[in-house]
Simulated scan of single mutants.
Amino acid sequence: MSRSVKEGLARARELILSHRRFVILEHEKPDGDCVGSSLALALALEKWGKQALIVSDDPHPVIYDFLPGQEHFTRTGYLGLADFHADVAIFLDCGEPERCGRALPFAQKAKYWVNIDHHVSNTKFGDAVLVDPSAAATGEILWYLFGELGVNIDARIAVCLYVAVLTDTGSFRYENTTPRALRMAADLIEKGARPQEISELVYEAKPLSSVMLLGEALQTLEIHAGGKIACVSVTREMMKKVAATSEDTEGIITYPRSIQGVMVAVQFREADEGVHVSFRTRRAVDASRIAETFGGGGHPRAAGALIKGKTLPEVKTLVLEEVRRVLEQNPDLVVKA
């Protein structure tokens, strides 16, 4: 554990123990790590006799409805700023405050900010900065924070933290599956998390619209750079056709990434606010650096960006040119037309 992480743990511990009311902020379109971490933290704060409210700009994906602690969750628009005043705002899995969207004003009323994250692109904001890019998930950071605080992790908290690390490691398949992540998973199973039940609920309970959208997206599959780039597109028309939501796009990008020889997989999704671009890469390519070129960020193997003011075809041309340029600069990769 690095010195900065130890300092962040100490400062976060101090602020948590010395205050009573907390607001937990999630990033827009929260994923499994974000949702599991937020619910686990809210449940832990409740055990300490403290008040905790999770505020998000977007709903939780329905596949996580089985997780305990949902009573602590609310969305912007359902609660006024005057309805809850927090002493401390805790940002979870957020590389920068603006990623909270319209939930950010709830943090601006708090006296202290705690930043808990594992993204390498984190801007290190806040009064307590607990950022560890070596962690497999933000939930992993909470796991050892709870250890520092002497929290008794019960079955409810264990389930939430297990979902956090399970989803961010791709079911323990990605390269961020470290010995520490597996020790964490083992500890959570001992405390009541049930892997088979959780895997079925997370991965084998997809709505029909999700499967139908996958079929539509795969018809747009394109291969570039001699087989090293694969991309798919999701248009508004597709989503309307199968009555899909943005939640149904989760996991589509894993299919182009799984093609033999592909180094970079890209997914383009049309939305009212712009074109969402997701990147998944293999070891030789840093996805976060590509995303940062377009104002986004993320992890070395999974990142994303929102590009505004351009059409999907324009974004596609722009992004594929940049990905090709990155591949051409890597001497270990041979890129063909």
Rank of each mutant, 00 (worst) to 15 (best):
D248Q: 01
D248L: 00
D248S: 02
T249Y: 08
T249P: 00
T249V: 14
T249N: 06
E250F: 05
E250A: 12
E250Y: 09
G251D: 06
G251K: 06
G251V: 02
G251M: 08
G251E: 02
G251T: 05
G251H: 03
I252K: 07
I252Y: 04
I252R: 10
I253R: 12
T254S: 14
Y255K: 14
Y255T: 12
Y255Q: 11
Y255L: 13
Y255E: 13
P256E: 11
P256K: 10
P256D: 04
P256N: 10
P256H: 12
P256R: 09
R257L: 15
R257H: 14
S258V: 02
S258Y: 10
S258R: 05
I259P: 00
I259D: 01
I259Q: 03
Q260R: 15
Q260W: 14
G261P: 03
G261L: 04
V262Q: 05
V262G: 00
V262R: 07
V262H: 05
M263E: 15
M263A: 11
M263L: 15
M263R: 15
A265I: 04
A265L: 04
A265C: 10
V266H: 00
V266W: 01
Q267R: 13
Q267G: 15
Q267T: 11
Q267D: 10
F268E: 01
F268D: 03
F268S: 09
F268A: 03
R269K: 14
R269C: 03
E270K: 09
E270A: 00
A271P: 00
A271F: 07
A271E: 13
A271K: 11
A271W: 02
A271G: 14
D272H: 08
D272I: 06
D272G: 07
D272P: 06
E273D: 15
E273R: 08
G274C: 09
G274P: 02
G274Y: 04
G274F: 06
G274H: 06
V275E: 10
V275W: 03
V275K: 03
H276C: 10
H276F: 13
H276G: 10
H276W: 13
V277W: 02
V277H: 04
S278T: 11
S278M: 10
S278Y: 12
S278H: 05
F279E: 14
F279V: 01
F279Y: 00
R280P: 06
T281N: 07
R282H: 15
R282P: 05
R283Y: 11
R283L: 14
R283N: 14
A284T: 11
A284P: 02
A284N: 08
A284F: 06
A284D: 12
A284Y: 03
V285H: 01
V285T: 10
V285Y: 03
D286V: 12
D286A: 06
D286K: 14
A287P: 06
S288L: 13
S288M: 07
S288W: 05
S288E: 07
R289S: 08
R289I: 03
R289V: 09
I290D: 04
I290W: 04
A291I: 10
A291F: 11
A291K: 05
A291T: 08
E292D: 03
E292W: 01
E292R: 13
E292Q: 13
T293H: 09
T293N: 10
T293Q: 09
F294I: 08
F294L: 05
F294R: 08
F294Q: 11
F294C: 09
G295I: 08
G295M: 02
G295S: 05
